[in-house]
Design a protein around this nucleic acid. Structure first.
Lengths: 246, 246
DNA sequence: CGAGCCATTGACGACTCTCAAGAATAGTGG
DNA sequence: CCACTATTCTTGAGAGTCGTCAATGGCTCG
C-alpha cells in the first residue's frame, strides 16, 4: 500500500553531491538494458515494489490516480534518474513512458545489499531522498497558492534549468510531455495551460514553436511571473533560539 | 538554501516499523527538555540546519513562505515526531508552536554520529523519509484535484485517525491549529474553510463544538466526501490504466 | 468590562473549469 | 506521395467554485 520512490536529479543541477549520484547509477551497469515505447508502463501504482530502475534514455511521467479517474502527475523522469527506491511494499505511483525509454533494473534486495556494502552510497541515497522531499514541497507551494500563470512560468523555468544544465541550447525548453500531462502536473486543465501559453506568447515572453518545444524570449519576465524566490540567494537570516553547544 | 526535514509519524499509525521509530526517539533521551509557547518559533526557514528536534509535547506547524507573504503549511507535528533531519545546509521550512511545546534537541553531527553507530536506525530513518515523501505526495493529490469539501473531509479524517490512534475518544477531532492554519494547509481561504464546516454541520455530518474540537457524527459520509481510497485496505487494485478526466 | 483576536456570514467578482467546436499535427493506408 | 483519420491543441462562450472585501458575532485575556 505504501511505497516511496527516489528521483535522482540530473547530475549537474545541484551544487551538492555529484559524485555520489554517479555512483548510484553505476550500481546498474551490469543489468541488461530494457526498452519501452511511448505509453507503455514500467510499473503500476500499487504493484509490489520489487525492483529499482535507472533511466538511461527517454522520459517518463510519474502518476497517481484517484478512484474516480482524476490523475495527478507527481513528476517527470529522464536520463540519469533513479526510481522505485522504497522501504515499503508497493509503489506509490505508476511510471509511464512519454517516448522511447531505455532503462536498467535491479531487484530491490540486490540494490539494498549493494547499498549496505557501501556506506557512501547510503549517504547519497539519503541526500537524494531529501531532495525528493524538497521537490515535493516546492510542488505543494505551487499547487497551494499559485495562479495558473505562476504555475506555468515556474514549470517552464524548472524545465529550462534542466535543459541548459544538460547542455542544450539555452532558451529552448524541451517538453516531451503532452499538454494534458502538464495540466495534470500543475493542477490545471489542458485548456488553461493552452490559453496561458498563448497569452505569454502574445506578450512576447516566449514563442511556441513546435509542439514539444518552447522558446523562451524573456527569461526575466518569466522569473518575475513565477512568483518564486527564484533568486535562490542566501539571505543570511539569523538563527533563532540559538544556544551554545560545544 | 536547501534543507530537508523528517517528520516521524505517530507510533501506531502505520503497520510499519514501530520499533525503529521508538529507537529514533530514544536518541534524544539525554538532551534537556526545552519549552516554547504558542506562536514562538523553533527554527526558521532558511536557517542553518544545525539541530534535529524530537517533539515531546504540544503541537507545531511546519510552514513555508513566498516572498509576497503567501504562506503554505506543509504539515503539523505533535508528540513523538522528529523534525529537522536534513542532509542539506538549511531548513526548508519554519517550525512554529501552536501551543505549549516541549522538545529535545541534538546537534545534527551528534545525531548522524549515533546513526552511523547503529545501522538499524539508518533503516528507520530511510523508512521515515519514505513516509514523508508519501505524505507529501498525498498532499499533492489533495491540492491538485480536490474540491474544498473533499479537502476538508480528507483533513478531518486524517486528524481523526491520528486522534483515535492515540487513544482519544473516537469521533472527536482535536484541532490545535486555527482556521487560518487549516486554510493554509489545504490551499483554501479561512472563509471557505469556515463555510465548508458550517455546511457539513448543517448536513448533520459533524458538529462544531468548541473552537478547537469537532465532533464527527457520520464518519462514512466524511469518507465518501473525501474522495480518497480511504479504504486503506489492500483492495486488490486493478493493474490497468484508467482514462483520466478532470 | 473593553480590547483584540478569531470565526462566521453575506454579497460580489474573478479565475479557472466545463462544454463545444474548430485548427493543426501526426500517423495510416492506398 | 497524397488523402484520410485520429489525436492533440487551440479558441470561444458560459457557468461554478472559491477568493476578496466587509460587517458582525463570539472568545479570551488583560
Amino acid at each position: 500500500m505504501f511505497a516511496s520512490s527516489l528521483n535522482v536529479r540530473p547530475l549537474f543541477e545541484e551544487t551538492g553531491p555529484i559524485r555520489e549520484q554517479c555512483s548510484l547509477g553505476a550500481l546498474f551497469d551490469r543489468s541488461p538494458r530494457e526498452r519501452v515505447t511511448a505509453g507503455q508502463i514500467v510499473f503500476f501504482e500499487g504493484d509490489r515494489a520489487l525492483h529499482v530502475f535507472a533511466i538511461r534514455e527517454g522520459n517518463l511521467r510519474i502518476c497517481r490516480q484517484l478512484h474516480d479517474g482524476r490523475r495527478v502527475i507527481a513528476g517527470f523522469l529522464t536520463k540519469g534518474d533513479i526510481v522505485g527506491v522504497s522501504f515499503k511494499n508497493r509503489y506509490l505511483y505508476s511510471a509511464e513512458a512519454l517516448d522511447d525509454v531505455a532503462f536498467q533494473r535491479q531487484t530491490k534486495v540486490a540494490f539494498e545489499k549493494q547499498l549496505l556494502a557501501r556506506p557512501d552510497l547510503r549517504s547519497a541515497l539519503l541526500s537524494q531522498l531529501c531532495d525528493e522531499v524538497a521537490a515535493a514541497q516546492d510542488q505543494m507551494v505551487l499547487l497551494s497558492c499559485k495562479s495558473a500563470e505562476e504555475r506555468l512560468c515556474s514549470f517552464l523555468l524548472a524545465r529550462l534549468r534542466k535543459s541548459t544544465a544538460q547542455g542544450c541550447e539555452p532558451n529552448v525548453v524541451d517538453l516531451p510531455m503532452t499538454r494534458l500531462d502538464i495540466a495534470d502536473y500543475l493542477g490545471l486543465t489542458i485548456e488553461t495551460v493552452s490559453r496561458t501559453v498563448t497569452k505569454l506568447a502574445g506578450q512576447g515572453i516566449l514563442s511556441a514553436g513546435r509542439r514539444h518545444e518552447i522558446l523562451v524570449l524573456k527569461k526575466s519576465a518569466l522569473v518575475q511571473r513565477a512568483g518564486e524566490d527564484e533568486a535562490d540567494v542566501d539571505n543570511g537570516r539569523e538563527d533563532t533560539l540559538r544556544y551554545s553547544h560545544h
